Amino acid sequence: MTGPSTTADQIQPAHPAWMRRLLMTATMILLLSLSAAAIGSIAQRLTAPAQIVAVAPQPVPDAAREVGMPLVVSPAWLREQRSVPESPLMVIDLSDIRAYEREHVPGAMHAWWQDGMDQNAASYGQALSPNPYPTGPREWFRSLGIDPSTRVVAYDDRQSRDAARFVWLMAFVGLENGAVLNGGLAAWKGAGLPVSDEAPPLSAPTELATDIVPPMVIATAELASWLEDPALTVVDVRTPAERNETLNDTIRTGSIPSSIPIPWDRLILDESGQLRSNAELRAIFAGAGLSPDREVVVYGRFGTDTGLLWLALRLAGYGTIRVYDEGWAIWASRPELPITE
């Protein structure tokens, strides 16, 4: 005896179990991806740079030098000099790109400060590998449209530290027309000057044939051999917090023997990075035992940390200043080199 027949219309196709699991997995992945994208977008908004708060511009230290423009300029100076047609002037904003897109000095061009580093160097932040000298910083300036006749004023949103490094890099490749805007955008706004969210047209690359200045830097081997030389003064620019960093337990803590601590944040008046007066800077350096007639070597965690102290020493009348561009990150990673706890 046979059972009831089944018609084609009564057959209900069913997905195999493996297909159902695959569909469920794909759906979960899609939902997780959308959630991650939403969280990432929220996180980006939460971590976006804060609005630059205006500060009252303070008197600019005497920043004249033998050649080129002053090392530090005021908002008023920048406003006046931009109207001088016979002498081109470029403003470089080294801030976070999101801060730049929101507001900047009108006509300022954005540049990313890390582009001034040698990507092949052993230590983060170095401007150059030991030998041969690369053309990295020079090519960066060329791509920005900077040539020996271009006057450049730089500012950032990190207490003038990146702007000072930018000016040091310019001097490093033989360009003496770089200056830091004292207090950056905060002081510009505090002077009642307008801001813009429009990017200017890109400048055409220039022909830039300048010579790198090797005496402005010192390598690890040379520094190690000179530590006992009484004519040399080594200055540590790190803050107490920076001195305790181990870079994920990859380096030792401590300092280069006989180095003198002068944290970079002692050199500025406020969060905008406005520099102290020449008299105050000279008093800080003299109190720490520095002398203008002795060679000074400056180091930080990385080479990029040294610009502000280099600038302040120049303002205070110190002539021979060299940057240990490999920085504490390299010194502390080499167990054969001495350290002081």
Rank of each mutant, 00 (worst) to 15 (best):
A43D: 07
R142V: 04
R276Y: 01
A50Q: 13
A286L: 13
E176Y: 14
R322P: 08
E207R: 08
S277N: 09
S95F: 02
L181W: 08
M1S: 10
S333N: 09
R165D: 01
T250N: 12
E207N: 07
G254N: 06
L308K: 03
A164K: 03
P230T: 04
L31D: 07
A122W: 00
A164L: 04
P134A: 10
W328R: 03
P205D: 12
E80S: 15
T210C: 09
R45Y: 04
S35T: 12
L71E: 01
L223R: 06
T47M: 12
G178R: 10
A36E: 05
A187T: 08
L34T: 10
A64M: 00
G183F: 14
L208F: 09
W140D: 02
Q119M: 11
A224M: 04
V167S: 06
P214N: 11
T47L: 14
V91N: 02
V167T: 10
T7R: 00
V297Y: 03
M1V: 05
W140M: 12
Q274D: 06
R20G: 00
D270W: 13
Q159V: 13
A316H: 01
L22V: 10
A14E: 13
S160I: 10
V153M: 06
V73M: 15
T304D: 03
S203G: 12
G174N: 12
P215E: 10
T27L: 10
